[in-house]
Design a protein around this nucleic acid. Sequence first.
DNA 1: ATTTGATGCGCAATCGATTGCATTATTGTG
DNA 2: CACAATAATGCAATCGATTGCGCATCAAAT
Lengths: 346, 346
Amino acid sequence: MSKTTIYDIASELNITPSTVSRALSNHPRISARTKKAVREVATRLNYRQNSIAAALRSGKTNMLGIVVPTTDRSFFSSVIRSIEQVATASEYNVMITQSNDQEKMERSNIEALLRAQVDGVIASISRETSDYSHFRKLTDNGIPLVLFDRVADLNHTSIVRIDDYRGAYEATAHLIAQGCSRIAHFAGQQKLDIYQQRFRGYKDALQDHRIAFDEALLHYSNVKIEDGRAGMNTLLRLKSPPDAVFAASDYAAIGAMQVLKEKGKRIPEDVALIGFMNETFTSFVDPGLTTVDQLSKKMGEIAASTFLEQVECPDEFVSKKIILSPKLIVRGSSLKADSSSMESNS
Amino acid sequence: MSKTTIYDIASELNITPSTVSRALSNHPRISARTKKAVREVATRLNYRQNSIAAALRSGKTNMLGIVVPTTDRSFFSSVIRSIEQVATASEYNVMITQSNDQEKMERSNIEALLRAQVDGVIASISRETSDYSHFRKLTDNGIPLVLFDRVADLNHTSIVRIDDYRGAYEATAHLIAQGCSRIAHFAGQQKLDIYQQRFRGYKDALQDHRIAFDEALLHYSNVKIEDGRAGMNTLLRLKSPPDAVFAASDYAAIGAMQVLKEKGKRIPEDVALIGFMNETFTSFVDPGLTTVDQLSKKMGEIAASTFLEQVECPDEFVSKKIILSPKLIVRGSSLKADSSSMESNS
DNA sequence: ATTTGATGCGCAATCGATTGCATTATTGTG
DNA sequence: CACAATAATGCAATCGATTGCGCATCAAAT
């Protein structure tokens, strides 16, 4: 029992394949009667469109490629989920690939998507990437490209991200409001724009509150758990250690939390802690980790609909740059005045 | 500048497209000289195979579909990563979809993969699924299907999973060895085989060590955090509460851990705790959560290579059922005799 | 010198749907 | 009733690569 094609339907009804094709795609020039008949035979014969043939002829695959560093962060998987929702609502299928934060894999992922002839790509750039030629290959071939969160300023590309500066500023200001004055910062690699912004937000918040910036309280790293541990250990050895740490990533913050607990420090009384990303686990460590939520859901929706707009009218391209305002999620790790328990999840 | 095709290469060299096609696919009947020439022109003209056309003609898309409940558990994303590795090594691209543990989405995912005409599917069944007809649709169409972890006994299907029974048995035995005697169990939905097995393993371990099974210490749920919290709260209200909990999922275990901390209980002295899955966060909560590792990497490798074997010889199908032995990862939440620190990661 | 076999390549059909243009059916209008 | 206008369908090329079969060439073997 080989697959049924439009030819089978056509011969069954004594009409031509063209008519069947048009009937199935709801062409206005086909009579309602024929359409009905075709649809009936189609279901009866269990017809399923050969999207490959359609893609070959029409040049559209109805596939949307996604490239993310990894899927096992709730941020990324949540973005993906919401992209999927919007995309499938418009008959697009989604092809997900992971770069594992390696430029080489990112490259081969893009190659794969190019081979698969996706109609567009939504990506968040790998931590390692310094050469963007593979992304250009997409736009050069007229494939819409939307970057989110980890973005770069490329031609013919749209962007959606959060205001990292503001997120960092608010986090730092919150710590200050809690009475902290020696606030350390675990900064990410400054070649990534998001980490630069977070650093700036931190610095400006200090300045605006007349707190001197202290170089000794600053630690650059990959902001993974180990880095947070190392950073915290270093900080605790200072003659005047910090009374708060704002980490550019939840992972670094968790590393710091581990060390603090091991050393018998109280959180937030001795050292308050804030992360960034709102990873799932931040809500169930003890104490809950205050963090900055990145609006993954909205980000995915916007990225997907931006893509859709761009495929709709490929002729008139408009590069969108959308910046969302992040949301501070206050939990136990930073809340000293425990009178008001203002935990708030979205 | 439209895409270059084999026709362009052919006319450049005054040969036919067939020869070009054969040269590029390294056909033995093409001379080394022609192959070289073709390859050179191909790179010069920046030729990229139109895989859609190839797929249409050959009936092979070189795409492998994946269906998982969610990608944001480290178990699943790790399995995916290792599937990707094996698959791409054999020139296969991977298309990932998430069911969000909903039967309906699982169905539409399979439909999408069917439309995309993937050459095979590797899946882990959704928690909700009770009707497997969509999976049958695959095998009916001759598409190899490999199930992992959350499996079902379908025709013409291969399976790779861990020995959940043994994992549970060892976890329980470990608790007993640590001196626990009132061991509670948070069981998952018994319609899922893995949770049945884990329950059996728990029960048998008790029996083998002459500990009476106490119905009051058993809690069925979806083994999410809330369930763990609820279960632990109930247990603590018993007149003789448990001195250990073995949860069928890390999430339920974390919920229990939260409640224990809130009530001022010491872990593991008052209540020891073991989870299942070896989620990333289990290693950085405090104390570290003892858990059962599911060998995600190996599972992915086996699933992928099983798929590869089946596409190689579609004629002679052999249904493989592979069962791996899980590994108990002992951490602070269950280690009472803190003399030997036997943390072991893979 | 002829046969045999291997080697290298071309011809043309094919995969299944799409689509511009041509053609036929249908309806309405004067 | 004729003729235009419109609606509905058919024709045939096309997307780009693959592949079975056939033909030619050439070296080795008889």
